[in-house]
Design a protein around this nucleic acid. Structure first.
Length: 177
DNA sequence: CCCTGATTCGC
DNA sequence: GCGAATCAGG
């Protein structure tokens, strides 16, 4: 089975390349071609190379983006709540103060230091032991991909998504990505 | 060792 | 035209 460069695939290549995806990422998104094939095609098409005045190459898009630019999200912060509980003991009723740790929805301030990473948009076939496997988008749709950012050691997620993975589902839904 | 793009050259 | 092998680099 040979995957030729159909018009449609060439268009997708142009689009992804212009978006700044690396050759290996594009190869994985297209499927059926190596990163060398992508680079070769980019040159034959005379697409603009990856610029970097004066110094070395590797012009990758910014990895991080300030949280202030992202939509406000909610965060579950633990807080201790004191309430009065009434309890029967024999014939008398006892009132006692009980401290309970609860998770409370709290607004995250825009000035928060939290940074939201821009995902590398890797395809399933491109994931490795050290890329984030957080799924993004609808698995039934064409642009479905995974975060793909670096994940520390053997963690299945990048530091950002690892945090989300252990938060309550309601929070996860809001924080998204 | 992970990754990046660039180039060459046999097919 | 294509892309594996290779090079040069971060």
């Amino acid at each position: 089975m040979t995957m030729g460069w159909t018009d449609e695939r060439v268009e997708r290549l142009k689009k992804l390349w212009s978006e700044g995806l690396s050759a290996s990422q594009i190869a994985a998104q297209l499927g059926g071609v190596s990163r060398n094939a992508v680079i070769g095609k980019v040159h034959r098409l005379c697409l603009p190379g990856r610029a970097k005045a004066g110094g070395a190459a590797t012009a990758r898009p910014a990895k991080r983006q300030a949280a202030a630019a992202a939509p406000r999200s909610q965060s579950f912060m633990p807080r201790t709540v004191t309430r009065t509980v009434t309890r029967a003991q024999g014939a008398t009723m006892l009132k006692e103060e009980v401290e309970t740790e609860v998770y409370y929805e709290t607004e995250v301030q825009p000035a928060s230091n939290v940074v939201v990473p821009i995902s590398r948009r890797l395809a399933l076939t491109e994931l490795t032991e050290r890329t984030c496997k957080w799924p993004v988008g609808d698995p039934m749709k064409d642009d479905f991909h995974f975060c793909g950012n670096d994940s520390p050691d053997s963690s299945p997620y990048c530091t950002y998504h690892a945090r989300l993975a252990y938060q309550p589902s309601a929070e996860r839904r809001r924080a998204g990505r």
